[in-house]
């Protein structure tokens, strides 16, 4: 059974159809990348997987671990193992990262039938996972993402992913706004988290990120549909020829 199966997905926002029949299958342990021009629907796909209510699914289905994902609330999806690293992490004044994250970690643990972490085990886990992306622990006593630099926000996303231990990590343009050093740190963090039991969907506009997080499969999303799929070499090809060359390409399915 695949981990994630998206069939004929149509989704709209404010009455405009963005996704127009998207198919995608991800098996356990695979890293898939979705590339595509601006406005092709990459971020919409990420938001729909995470359960943002502004996006209306008008047709199709998403099956996650054999269950209907679209039937679950965003927090249930997180409990089931879906994690979205936001393109624009939200600043939340007055709520400290530590406080929020402890609630989040214990909510997903509860959902998964695990014991809640006490303060000491939680801090131990924080210590271990902050090292993964070289995030300064002191930042965590601040309000969520408030006063964080662009790079710190993205590292905070990957840190949170490590804390929540998902089975599917969706990275929405995690590379945007990162310089080359920060990009390497974030990618190293993700690579450390790669395992047989964990899959990734890496959404990016540029091929650059894929030099560091090497995908098993690359898909090209144009106008709400996947128009071409291939191996990691497809990313390089796109870098040279641009997206225009694949606009009329044949639809292929992979990974199934």
């Amino acid at each position: 059974m695949p981990l994630l199966e998206i069939r004929n997905l149509h989704a709209s926002v404010d009455g405009h159809e963005i996704l127009k029949g998207l198919d995608l299958t991800i098996n356990a342990g695979e890293v898939h990348s979705i590339m595509g021009p601006n406005g092709s629907g990459k971020s919409t796909l990420a938001q729909v997987i995470a359960g943002h209510e502004a996006y209306e699914v008008t047709e199709g289905e998403i099956v996650f671990k054999g269950e209907d994902l679209l039937d679950m609330s965003p927090d249930e999806r997180a409990g089931e193992g879906v994690f979205l690293a936001f393109q624009y992490p939200v600043e939340i004044p007055g709520v400290s990262t530590n406080y929020f994250l402890k609630s989040a970690v214990n909510a997903v643990r509860k959902h998964r039938g695990q014991d809640e972490l006490d303060a000491i085990s939680f801090m131990k886990l924080v210590k271990e996972k902050t090292k993964l992306v070289q995030l300064n622990e002191k930042l965590l006593s601040r309000a969520v993402n408030e006063g964080f630099s662009g790079g710190e926000k993205k590292r905070n996303e990957i840190f949170q992913m490590a804390m929540l231990d998902p089975t599917l990590g969706v990275l929405d343009e995690t590379d945007s706004g990162l310089d080359i050093d920060a990009l390497r740190i974030v990618a190293d963090g993700v690579n450390t988290l790669r395992s047989e039991g964990r899959s990734f969907l890496v959404i990016t506009h540029y091929q650059r990120l894929l030099d560091y997080i090497v995908p098993d499969y690359v898909h090209v999303l144009v106008d709400g549909r996947i128009v071409k799929s291939g191996g990691k070499e497809l990313a390089l090809e796109l870098e040279q020829t641009g997206y225009a060359s694949v606009q009329d390409g044949a639809v292929q399915t992979v990974g199934s």
Binding site: G51, D75, L84, F86, V90, I92, P93, V95, F100, H111
Partner: peptide, 23 residues
């Protein structure tokens, strides 16, 4: 902000309460 918290596993009621408490 509520969606962000929920996407990390925090149930909706708790997310709202957290924001009010933060305020």
């Amino acid at each position: 902000a509520i969606f962000y918290l929920r996407a990390r596993g925090v149930p909706e009621d708790e997310a709202r309460g957290m924001l009010v408490k933060g305020f």
